[in-house]
Design a binder for these strands. Structure first.
Lengths: 162, 162
DNA sequence: CTTGACTAGTTATCTTATAACATATTCCTT
DNA sequence: AAGGAATATGTTATAAGATAACTAGTCAAG
């Protein structure tokens, strides 16, 4: 599913994209014995509606409208579950969350954030991660987690802006 | 000054380290015609006291104690100035700020954050930035800014933890 | 010595995130 | 099927981080 991150910025059949990601996530949850409860499932569906990051309170509003709790922990806990198990990512630069486009696959995501349309893509980060470890190695630092995020312009938003 | 980021995690003469960074920053400000006013200078000195990131409110408390304003914008504006002109960096993962160890030199910083002691080092990021651009290129994304941050253990905190 | 740009201060408010506790659900064990 | 541990959901309250909008002081150029 979108191994090279091209989908997010290209026009595509998003209904299929979303459904595929959802099905994939469900299969992974099933396989790992994780409880994809109604709030958690719904939170993931909400994130999957677009290739953009959503703030926790945005997700919370949506959940509350649909009969779930309306207090912050409701959203934060669902999102925490999704992030912890690899169904979603936290985008630190935006204080926001986005559905993962490769659930189940080990990967270091590189987030590309379009400053014009707020679109978000996940580029492959293996090479970046390697370079980072090589940069940290000489300092004797042991890397455990990393966040790699870039802000710029997606292909569509570069037009008329050259 | 600390071109390879080794200083932060190694024991060193920090008074000289701090004074050197401050002198360097002043020279750069002078050269560029920037106004390193008392609040701004003091904010930078506070950041330079340790190789750790400080929250805006931590800096604000210190500034207030010393007779500067005690409202958030006082700290945020000073920090914004420092970041904008390359005297400090914002560490998104920590919602915090840290003095730059290479003021005046163009560089992409890679932040190494020790989860045990909160130490912070700035590793060289040229190779990482190149890898990132190569990862973003095929998607047609034009990178403008990037944040590259790693969490892990510094050399000292790895001892007795292997 | 006044004008315009910039700086520093204020009040007020907004956004993001977590702590602590009560209730309900699930699921394993017997 | 009942008991009990673990997990999940909900609440109230508050902490932590950030910005908008306005007022007043500073300073250098004309």
């Amino acid at each position: 599913m979108d191994p090279d991150g091209t989908l997010a910025f290209a026009s595509h059949d998003h209904a299929a994209c979303r459904d595929g990601a959802m099905a994939h996530a469900e299969a992974v949850a099933e396989a790992k014995g994780l409880r994809l409860t109604p709030v958690r499932r719904r939170a993931l569906e909400i994130l999957l509606e677009s290739h953009q990051a959503l703030g926790a309170y945005d997700v919370l509003d949506r959940l509350a409208e649909e009969g779930f709790g309306r207090q912050p922990p409701v959203a934060y806990r669902a999102l925490e579950f999704l992030v912890e198990h690899g169904f979603a990512h936290r985008i630190r630069r935006l204080n926001a969350f986005a559905a993962c486009m490769h659930p189940g696959e080990a990967h270091v995501p590189v987030f590309l954030i379009c400053s014009a349309c707020n679109g978000l893509a996940e580029a492959p980060g293996a090479a970046v991660a390697t370079a980072l470890r090589q940069s940290a190695g000489p300092l004797g630092f042991r890397v455990e987690r990393m966040s790699i995020e870039a802000v710029g312009l997606c292909p569509a938003c570069q037009e008329g802006d050259e």
